[in-house]
């Protein structure tokens, strides 16, 4: 019996999932007619194909071009760790890493991420071991409700990769794109400092 707390079993058999995990050519799958007409016209039918790698797994899907990267993750791939807080690029809850750089997944069409490598909160821990940032967030109680937390963590991972923030002032400024209404900011800064010390 399904435990309702975990929700009914998710069925990734939605029509948009063609293949997951399979190795396929990166090039756009163009309808034959479209290719002849112009090398750049794709899918006049309204649905478009996209192939992108998420947390190391390649996904090939045919989607509504309006699908944001955020909704692709949450609604199509059941990667619900990435959060929707505003859907307008104003809160940072949807932050993921695209080729290692932090971005707001709500303000971008998934189809534009053809061939990119996306890392979400589900991909931050390596092999069951928490990322140093994740452990530091727990140690410093750098969250309360937890809703902004995946975005804070992905943002902090991006921040560390950038290598620009050295001082608390710089961490604060460069983490200001992630709103925490619970107000855990000082603990978030402390957690990031801890993780920076370790890495």
């Amino acid at each position: 019996m399904t435990d309702p707390e975990d929700g009914p079993t998710f069925h990734p058999t939605r029509r948009d999932v063609i293949a997951a995990g399979a190795v396929v050519p990166i090039a756009m799958a163009l309808p034959p007619g479209a290719a002849a007409q112009s090398p750049s016209v794709a899918a006049a039918s309204g649905r478009v194909a996209v192939s992108l790698t998420i947390n190391g797994t390649q996904h090939v899907l045919t989607i509504d071009p309006r699908t944001t990267l955020l909704d692709l993750l949450r609604e199509h791939l059941d990667l619900t760790g990435t959060k929707k807080g505003c859907d307008q690029g104003q809160c940072g809850a949807c932050t993921v890493l695209s080729d290692g750089r932090r971005i707001n997944s709500c303000l971008t069409f998934a189809v534009m991420f053809e061939g990119r490598h996306i890392t979400t909160i589900e991909g931050l821990a390596a092999g069951g071991t928490l990322h140093p940032l994740q452990q530091a967030f727990i140690d410093h109680d750098a969250f309360q409700c937890g809703y902004c937390t995946p975005g804070q963590l992905c943002s902090a991972a991006g921040l560390m990769a950038e290598g620009r923030a050295k001082t608390p002032d710089e961490i604060r400024e460069l983490m200001s794109g992630n709103i925490c209404r619970c107000g855990a900011y000082p603990n978030i800064v402390a957690a990031i400092q801890q993780a920076m010390g370790r890495s």
């Binding site: 707390e5 990667l79 969250f143 937890g146 937390t149």
Partner: peptide, 17 residues
């Protein structure tokens, strides 16, 4: 904490059917 930092904590919009 582990659920919250790994994205495993599920909120109301994250239960599929």
């Amino acid at each position: 904490g582990v659920k919250k930092v790994t994205g495993a904590a599920k909120y109301a919009a994250e239960f599929n059917a």
